[in-house]
Amino acid sequence: MTDQTQKDVLLELKDYSITFKTPDGDVKAVSNMNLTVRRGERIAIVGESGSGKSQTFLGIMGLLAKNGQTSGQALLEGRDVLALKPRELDKVRGKDMAMVFQDPMTALNPSLKISRQLTEQLEIHRGFTAKAASIEALDMLKRVGIPDPTRRFNLYPHELSGGMRQRIVIAMALLTKPKLLIADEPTTALDVTIQAQILDLFNDLTAEMNTALLMITHDLGVVAGLADRVAVMYAGNIVEEAPVDELFEKPAHPYTAALHAAIPRPDQDVDDLVVIPGRPPNLQHLPKGCNFSPRCPKVQDDCIDRPPQLETLAPQHCAACFHPFPRREELLTHA
Protein backbone atom coordinates (compact mmCIF):
# COMPACT_ATOMS: atom_id res chain seq x y z
CA MET A 1 0.00 0.00 0.00
CA THR A 2 1.42 3.37 -0.91
CA ASP A 3 1.66 6.23 1.54
CA GLN A 4 -1.11 8.09 -0.17
CA THR A 5 -3.69 5.30 0.05
CA GLN A 6 -2.59 4.59 3.61
CA LYS A 7 -3.38 8.19 4.47
CA ASP A 8 -6.70 7.83 2.76
CA VAL A 9 -7.88 5.11 5.10
CA LEU A 10 -10.12 6.44 7.85
CA LEU A 11 -11.37 3.34 9.64
CA GLU A 12 -10.00 -0.14 9.40
CA LEU A 13 -11.54 -3.19 11.06
CA LYS A 14 -9.13 -6.08 11.45
CA ASP A 15 -10.29 -9.49 12.56
CA TYR A 16 -13.03 -7.75 14.50
CA SER A 17 -15.43 -9.91 16.55
CA ILE A 18 -18.17 -9.35 19.09
CA THR A 19 -19.22 -12.00 21.58
CA PHE A 20 -22.13 -11.81 23.99
CA LYS A 21 -22.09 -13.84 27.16
CA THR A 22 -25.55 -15.24 27.89
CA PRO A 23 -26.76 -17.77 30.47
CA ASP A 24 -27.17 -20.26 27.62
CA GLY A 25 -23.61 -19.86 26.40
CA ASP A 26 -21.59 -17.43 24.31
CA VAL A 27 -23.13 -15.92 21.20
CA LYS A 28 -20.85 -14.62 18.49
CA ALA A 29 -22.75 -11.70 16.95
CA VAL A 30 -19.93 -10.62 14.64
CA SER A 31 -17.09 -12.90 13.69
CA ASN A 32 -13.68 -12.02 12.28
CA MET A 33 -14.75 -9.06 10.23
CA ASN A 34 -12.44 -7.03 8.02
CA LEU A 35 -13.52 -3.72 6.52
CA THR A 36 -11.81 -0.59 5.29
CA VAL A 37 -13.48 2.83 5.13
CA ARG A 38 -11.75 5.64 3.24
CA ARG A 39 -12.20 9.35 3.85
CA GLY A 40 -15.42 10.74 2.44
CA GLU A 41 -16.58 7.33 1.31
CA ARG A 42 -20.20 6.20 1.64
CA ILE A 43 -20.51 2.59 2.64
CA ALA A 44 -23.75 0.74 3.24
CA ILE A 45 -23.92 -2.26 5.52
CA VAL A 46 -26.94 -4.34 4.54
CA GLY A 47 -28.39 -7.23 6.48
CA GLU A 48 -31.51 -8.64 8.01
CA SER A 49 -32.33 -8.61 11.71
CA GLY A 50 -29.77 -10.65 13.64
CA SER A 51 -27.07 -10.26 10.99
CA GLY A 52 -24.93 -8.30 13.45
CA LYS A 53 -24.92 -5.14 11.35
CA SER A 54 -25.88 -2.80 14.20
CA GLN A 55 -23.77 -4.50 16.86
CA THR A 56 -20.67 -4.08 14.73
CA PHE A 57 -20.79 -0.32 15.02
CA LEU A 58 -22.20 -0.11 18.52
CA GLY A 59 -19.06 -2.03 19.42
CA ILE A 60 -16.82 0.54 17.76
CA MET A 61 -18.65 3.35 19.55
CA GLY A 62 -18.24 1.51 22.87
CA LEU A 63 -22.01 1.25 23.25
CA LEU A 64 -22.44 -2.53 23.52
CA ALA A 65 -24.65 -4.06 26.17
CA LYS A 66 -22.78 -4.97 29.35
CA ASN A 67 -22.35 -8.63 28.42
CA GLY A 68 -20.83 -7.81 25.05
CA GLN A 69 -17.10 -8.17 24.40
CA THR A 70 -15.11 -7.00 21.38
CA SER A 71 -11.90 -8.45 20.05
CA GLY A 72 -9.59 -7.65 17.15
CA GLN A 73 -8.79 -4.10 16.10
CA ALA A 74 -10.76 -1.07 14.95
CA LEU A 75 -8.25 1.49 13.77
CA LEU A 76 -9.55 5.03 13.39
CA GLU A 77 -6.76 6.98 11.69
CA GLY A 78 -4.38 4.34 12.93
CA ARG A 79 -5.55 4.47 16.56
CA ASP A 80 -7.29 1.39 17.96
CA VAL A 81 -10.57 2.68 19.42
CA LEU A 82 -11.25 -0.66 21.09
CA ALA A 83 -8.20 -0.16 23.29
CA LEU A 84 -9.11 3.37 24.36
CA LYS A 85 -10.05 4.20 27.94
CA PRO A 86 -13.67 5.35 28.41
CA ARG A 87 -12.48 8.95 28.90
CA GLU A 88 -10.52 9.02 25.64
CA LEU A 89 -13.28 7.23 23.81
CA ASP A 90 -15.73 9.94 24.92
CA LYS A 91 -13.55 12.52 23.21
CA VAL A 92 -13.27 10.53 20.00
CA ARG A 93 -16.99 9.82 20.03
CA GLY A 94 -18.04 13.41 20.12
CA LYS A 95 -15.40 14.71 17.73
CA ASP A 96 -14.19 12.17 15.21
CA MET A 97 -17.18 9.90 14.88
CA ALA A 98 -20.87 10.44 15.51
CA MET A 99 -23.88 8.19 15.32
CA VAL A 100 -27.49 8.66 14.18
CA PHE A 101 -30.03 6.10 15.38
CA GLN A 102 -33.29 4.75 14.03
CA ASP A 103 -35.42 6.42 16.66
CA PRO A 104 -34.50 10.11 16.97
CA MET A 105 -36.08 10.29 20.41
CA THR A 106 -33.38 8.03 21.87
CA ALA A 107 -30.77 10.60 20.94
CA LEU A 108 -32.67 13.63 22.17
CA ASN A 109 -33.23 14.53 25.78
CA PRO A 110 -36.98 15.13 26.07
CA SER A 111 -36.64 17.68 28.86
CA LEU A 112 -34.12 19.99 27.17
CA LYS A 113 -34.76 22.56 24.47
CA ILE A 114 -33.31 21.92 21.03
CA SER A 115 -31.03 24.92 21.41
CA ARG A 116 -29.43 23.62 24.60
CA GLN A 117 -28.85 20.14 23.18
CA LEU A 118 -27.11 21.54 20.13
CA THR A 119 -24.93 24.17 21.77
CA GLU A 120 -23.79 21.88 24.57
CA GLN A 121 -21.88 19.76 22.05
CA LEU A 122 -20.04 22.76 20.70
CA GLU A 123 -19.22 24.20 24.08
CA ILE A 124 -17.79 20.91 25.33
CA HIS A 125 -15.94 19.63 22.30
CA ARG A 126 -14.90 22.77 20.56
CA GLY A 127 -14.74 25.30 23.35
CA PHE A 128 -17.23 27.73 21.83
CA THR A 129 -18.74 30.55 23.84
CA ALA A 130 -22.49 30.36 24.35
CA LYS A 131 -23.13 33.03 21.75
CA ALA A 132 -20.83 31.61 19.10
CA ALA A 133 -22.31 28.18 19.74
CA SER A 134 -25.86 29.31 19.08
CA ILE A 135 -24.85 31.06 15.87
CA GLU A 136 -23.09 27.92 14.68
CA ALA A 137 -26.02 25.69 15.75
CA LEU A 138 -28.57 27.87 13.99
CA ASP A 139 -26.47 27.73 10.87
CA MET A 140 -26.40 23.94 11.06
CA LEU A 141 -30.18 23.80 11.48
CA LYS A 142 -30.51 25.77 8.27
CA ARG A 143 -28.16 23.40 6.50
CA VAL A 144 -30.16 20.31 7.50
CA GLY A 145 -33.18 21.96 5.97
CA ILE A 146 -35.23 22.97 8.97
CA PRO A 147 -37.62 25.70 7.94
CA ASP A 148 -37.92 28.66 10.30
CA PRO A 149 -34.93 27.54 12.44
CA THR A 150 -34.99 30.48 14.86
CA ARG A 151 -38.47 29.55 16.04
CA ARG A 152 -37.76 25.81 16.19
CA PHE A 153 -34.51 26.49 18.06
CA ASN A 154 -36.45 27.10 21.25
CA LEU A 155 -38.82 24.14 21.09
CA TYR A 156 -38.69 20.83 22.92
CA PRO A 157 -38.18 17.58 20.97
CA HIS A 158 -41.78 16.37 21.44
CA GLU A 159 -43.08 19.49 19.71
CA LEU A 160 -41.50 18.40 16.42
CA SER A 161 -42.50 15.76 13.88
CA GLY A 162 -40.48 12.59 13.38
CA GLY A 163 -38.78 13.88 10.26
CA MET A 164 -37.82 17.17 11.96
CA ARG A 165 -36.43 15.29 14.95
CA GLN A 166 -34.26 13.14 12.71
CA ARG A 167 -32.97 16.31 11.05
CA ILE A 168 -32.11 17.74 14.47
CA VAL A 169 -30.25 14.55 15.37
CA ILE A 170 -28.32 14.72 12.12
CA ALA A 171 -27.51 18.37 12.83
CA MET A 172 -26.28 17.36 16.27
CA ALA A 173 -24.12 14.61 14.84
CA LEU A 174 -22.57 16.89 12.22
CA LEU A 175 -22.00 19.93 14.44
CA THR A 176 -18.61 18.78 15.58
CA LYS A 177 -17.64 18.05 11.96
CA PRO A 178 -16.91 14.36 12.52
CA LYS A 179 -14.79 12.42 10.06
CA LEU A 180 -17.09 9.42 10.27
CA LEU A 181 -20.86 9.43 10.56
CA ILE A 182 -22.52 6.13 11.43
CA ALA A 183 -26.23 6.04 10.63
CA ASP A 184 -28.14 3.03 11.98
CA GLU A 185 -31.39 2.60 10.00
CA PRO A 186 -31.91 6.38 10.08
CA THR A 187 -34.99 6.31 7.86
CA THR A 188 -36.71 3.10 8.90
CA ALA A 189 -39.12 4.83 11.26
CA LEU A 190 -39.99 7.54 8.74
CA ASP A 191 -42.53 7.83 5.95
CA VAL A 192 -41.46 7.33 2.35
CA THR A 193 -41.66 10.98 1.37
CA ILE A 194 -39.72 12.00 4.50
CA GLN A 195 -37.25 9.17 3.95
CA ALA A 196 -36.49 10.58 0.52
CA GLN A 197 -35.82 14.00 2.07
CA ILE A 198 -33.48 12.59 4.70
CA LEU A 199 -31.56 10.47 2.17
CA ASP A 200 -31.05 13.54 -0.01
CA LEU A 201 -29.80 15.35 3.05
CA PHE A 202 -27.22 12.65 3.80
CA ASN A 203 -26.16 12.74 0.19
CA ASP A 204 -25.63 16.52 0.11
CA LEU A 205 -24.10 17.02 3.55
CA THR A 206 -21.57 14.21 3.51
CA ALA A 207 -20.32 15.39 0.11
CA GLU A 208 -20.16 18.98 1.34
CA MET A 209 -18.30 18.19 4.55
CA ASN A 210 -16.24 15.27 3.21
CA THR A 211 -17.57 13.06 5.98
CA ALA A 212 -17.40 9.31 5.55
CA LEU A 213 -20.81 7.72 5.93
CA LEU A 214 -21.53 4.25 7.21
CA MET A 215 -25.19 3.56 6.54
CA ILE A 216 -26.59 0.50 8.29
CA THR A 217 -29.84 -0.69 6.77
CA HIS A 218 -31.98 -3.70 5.92
CA ASP A 219 -33.24 -2.07 2.72
CA LEU A 220 -31.26 -2.56 -0.47
CA GLY A 221 -33.53 -0.01 -2.14
CA VAL A 222 -32.35 2.77 0.18
CA VAL A 223 -28.75 1.85 -0.53
CA ALA A 224 -29.00 2.04 -4.29
CA GLY A 225 -29.18 5.80 -4.56
CA LEU A 226 -26.76 6.67 -1.79
CA ALA A 227 -23.82 4.35 -1.25
CA ASP A 228 -20.51 4.03 -3.12
CA ARG A 229 -19.79 0.61 -1.74
CA VAL A 230 -21.98 -2.06 -0.13
CA ALA A 231 -21.17 -4.82 2.33
CA VAL A 232 -23.80 -7.51 2.84
CA MET A 233 -23.86 -9.23 6.22
CA TYR A 234 -25.42 -12.56 7.10
CA ALA A 235 -25.32 -14.19 10.53
CA GLY A 236 -22.38 -12.12 11.76
CA ASN A 237 -20.21 -12.30 8.64
CA ILE A 238 -19.69 -10.13 5.62
CA VAL A 239 -20.72 -12.43 2.78
CA GLU A 240 -20.16 -9.99 -0.07
CA GLU A 241 -18.59 -6.59 -0.58
CA ALA A 242 -18.59 -4.64 -3.83
CA PRO A 243 -19.04 -1.22 -5.42
CA VAL A 244 -22.75 -0.43 -5.53
CA ASP A 245 -23.30 -0.79 -9.28
CA GLU A 246 -21.46 -4.06 -9.45
CA LEU A 247 -23.30 -5.49 -6.46
CA PHE A 248 -26.67 -4.79 -8.02
CA GLU A 249 -25.70 -5.86 -11.52
CA LYS A 250 -23.58 -8.90 -10.80
CA PRO A 251 -24.28 -10.14 -7.30
CA ALA A 252 -21.95 -13.04 -6.61
CA HIS A 253 -23.23 -14.48 -3.36
CA PRO A 254 -26.54 -16.36 -3.64
CA TYR A 255 -27.80 -14.50 -0.57
CA THR A 256 -27.17 -11.07 -2.11
CA ALA A 257 -28.76 -12.20 -5.34
CA ALA A 258 -31.79 -13.60 -3.56
CA LEU A 259 -32.13 -10.52 -1.36
CA HIS A 260 -32.01 -8.30 -4.40
CA ALA A 261 -34.53 -10.39 -6.29
CA ALA A 262 -36.87 -10.60 -3.30
CA ILE A 263 -37.38 -6.84 -3.05
CA PRO A 264 -40.74 -5.84 -4.47
CA ARG A 265 -40.43 -2.98 -6.93
CA PRO A 266 -42.71 0.02 -7.19
CA ASP A 267 -41.93 0.47 -10.87
CA GLN A 268 -42.45 -3.06 -12.14
CA ASP A 269 -45.13 -5.69 -12.08
CA VAL A 270 -43.66 -8.82 -10.60
CA ASP A 271 -45.71 -11.95 -10.96
CA ASP A 272 -43.12 -14.47 -9.89
CA LEU A 273 -41.99 -13.32 -6.52
CA VAL A 274 -38.61 -14.68 -5.50
CA VAL A 275 -38.91 -16.19 -2.06
CA ILE A 276 -35.98 -17.16 0.13
CA PRO A 277 -37.09 -20.25 2.03
CA GLY A 278 -36.45 -20.76 5.74
CA ARG A 279 -35.14 -18.12 8.10
CA PRO A 280 -31.82 -16.72 9.31
CA PRO A 281 -29.99 -19.17 11.58
CA ASN A 282 -29.92 -19.01 15.33
CA LEU A 283 -26.51 -17.57 16.21
CA GLN A 284 -26.09 -20.09 18.99
CA HIS A 285 -26.46 -23.01 16.62
CA LEU A 286 -24.78 -22.05 13.39
CA PRO A 287 -24.41 -24.67 10.70
CA LYS A 288 -21.03 -26.35 10.38
CA GLY A 289 -20.45 -25.12 6.84
CA CYS A 290 -21.70 -21.96 5.18
CA ASN A 291 -24.26 -20.10 7.32
CA PHE A 292 -26.55 -19.66 4.34
CA SER A 293 -26.37 -23.29 3.23
CA PRO A 294 -29.75 -24.38 4.72
CA ARG A 295 -31.52 -21.73 2.61
CA CYS A 296 -29.30 -21.66 -0.44
CA PRO A 297 -30.61 -22.78 -3.84
CA LYS A 298 -27.07 -23.59 -4.95
CA VAL A 299 -26.00 -25.59 -1.91
CA GLN A 300 -23.62 -28.47 -2.57
CA ASP A 301 -21.79 -30.92 -0.42
CA ASP A 302 -18.73 -28.75 0.19
CA CYS A 303 -20.95 -25.92 1.49
CA ILE A 304 -22.11 -28.18 4.30
CA ASP A 305 -18.61 -29.34 5.17
CA ARG A 306 -16.74 -26.12 5.81
CA PRO A 307 -17.42 -22.38 5.85
CA PRO A 308 -16.26 -20.45 2.76
CA GLN A 309 -13.86 -17.52 3.22
CA LEU A 310 -14.12 -14.09 1.61
CA GLU A 311 -12.33 -14.25 -1.72
CA THR A 312 -11.65 -11.52 -4.23
CA LEU A 313 -13.56 -12.11 -7.45
CA ALA A 314 -12.85 -8.83 -9.21
CA PRO A 315 -11.13 -5.61 -8.15
CA GLN A 316 -12.87 -4.37 -4.97
CA HIS A 317 -15.39 -7.20 -5.20
CA CYS A 318 -15.22 -10.12 -2.84
CA ALA A 319 -17.66 -12.77 -1.72
CA ALA A 320 -17.65 -15.75 0.64
CA CYS A 321 -19.10 -18.53 -1.46
CA PHE A 322 -17.86 -21.73 -3.10
CA HIS A 323 -20.33 -21.47 -5.98
CA PRO A 324 -21.01 -17.81 -6.73
CA PHE A 325 -23.11 -16.17 -9.48
CA PRO A 326 -26.58 -17.59 -9.76
CA ARG A 327 -28.98 -15.87 -12.11
CA ARG A 328 -32.45 -14.67 -11.31
CA GLU A 329 -34.05 -17.44 -13.39
CA GLU A 330 -32.18 -20.04 -11.40
CA LEU A 331 -33.56 -18.60 -8.18
CA LEU A 332 -37.10 -18.66 -9.40
CA THR A 333 -37.12 -22.37 -10.09
CA HIS A 334 -36.12 -23.07 -6.51
CA ALA A 335 -38.48 -20.69 -4.72
Binding site: G278, P294, V299, D301
Partner: peptide, 19 residues
Protein backbone atom coordinates in the same frame (compact mmCIF):
# COMPACT_ATOMS: atom_id res chain seq x y z
CA UNK B 1 -23.62 -32.31 -6.88
CA UNK B 2 -26.55 -30.07 -6.16
CA UNK B 3 -28.77 -31.09 -3.29
CA UNK B 4 -32.37 -31.74 -4.05
CA UNK B 5 -34.98 -29.73 -2.14
CA UNK B 6 -35.89 -32.69 0.05
CA UNK B 7 -32.33 -33.01 1.28
CA UNK B 8 -32.18 -29.29 1.91
CA UNK B 9 -35.28 -29.49 4.09
CA UNK B 10 -33.80 -32.37 6.00
CA UNK B 11 -30.79 -30.20 6.64
CA UNK B 12 -32.96 -27.37 7.90
CA UNK B 13 -34.86 -29.74 10.16
CA UNK B 14 -31.61 -31.03 11.63
CA UNK B 15 -30.62 -27.48 12.39
CA UNK B 16 -33.92 -26.83 14.12
CA UNK B 17 -33.32 -29.89 16.22
CA UNK B 18 -29.86 -28.65 17.06
CA UNK B 19 -31.42 -25.48 18.43
Amino acid sequence: MILNPAKRELLAAELLEAE
